[in-house]
Design a protein around this nucleic acid. Sequence first.
DNA 1: GTCTATAATCAGATAGAC
DNA 2: GTCTATCTGATTATAGAC
Lengths: 198, 198
Amino acid sequence: MARTAGSHSQTTGPRVRAQAEALFAKHGYAAVSMRQIAAAVGVQAGALYNYIPDKQTLLFSLLHDHMADLLVAWDGQDLSNDPLIVLDQFTQFHLEYHLNRKDAVFIAYMELRNLTTDNFAIIETLRRQYEDHLERLIIAAQEAGAVTVADTRIVTLAVIGMLTEVTTWYRPDGRLDMAVLCGMYKTLVRRTLGATQV
Amino acid sequence: MARTAGSHSQTTGPRVRAQAEALFAKHGYAAVSMRQIAAAVGVQAGALYNYIPDKQTLLFSLLHDHMADLLVAWDGQDLSNDPLIVLDQFTQFHLEYHLNRKDAVFIAYMELRNLTTDNFAIIETLRRQYEDHLERLIIAAQEAGAVTVADTRIVTLAVIGMLTEVTTWYRPDGRLDMAVLCGMYKTLVRRTLGATQV
DNA sequence: GTCTATAATCAGATAGAC
DNA sequence: GTCTATCTGATTATAGAC
């Protein structure tokens, strides 16, 4: 309970990350100054350096945690034995996860070019891992005779592209609720894969 | 033939735009300085202001011309009477046009947030016009009984998202040439639309 | 049309007081 | 842990010489 005045280490750190994420998504990494982040948090610029070594590391940390969390979340899914139902589960998972983290998704796609070469390689490896998860599902469905795909890699990227694009226009208070949206995209994904049942 | 030393008005203007486009695509609008653009062109920073009023107008001009050129190019297409062939034509047009202008496409999607409010509205109107072209094709195909779509607007955005995503990974010297790529995506688009023939 | 020089501002990051 | 003050260098844009 007793706490030194001005000491908020348990809350300021996460707040720096949250405000940076929101500002980077809105204006772009290069366009946001450390002073802007500090103002959003409610501290002076110098205080930020108690929590982050520099601006580049802050960006990398946001992207890395987003991708790592995504992989952990997918690993935690309870998957069906039906190869078509599993594809529906991926569609639903991808849409819900990404629509609930629009800022992080936006940054993860937009700010890759602002990473150093080494940091970029790490993020790309994580992204590739996620893509591979879906490609394995498509290959399994193909082997089970549930879908017909000419090139599993291309179709994997096409499906992820189609699903991720939703984050650029979907509004929770718009004309479609999540359940309806997910239902429509499950159909679109099955169709794209040439599923035996749609 | 005779030309005042240092006078290159017929070439410098376009070169400023071309170099700015390349640099904005690579590093992002906010991350690129006028000095960098000038260095790429081969002049000093001050000379740029003979061709552009300011940095913001340069960005807007690049985005505006890209979208306007896209609409003009589509209007110039010779379209089939077959509603499914027309959709194939759109797929091919969109892929070829966008893959030949990767930098402009990247900027058009990434730098919208760096436009002023007024400029943003203008670009969004142009983008919406392009989307409407595809949506009308889908509606026509639906009315002709050639496709089955639950929500023409959603599917329009899904198709454009799927096609545009290709620009993030396609390499002309990669394992797929344009003809094969277009063929595969024509199938994917037809499938997504629930076409009677794929 | 391009140059050099400069104005006015802002950037990321650090030092030391409290 | 946060503040103020500051360092160093970069930013956009302009002015005037050539």
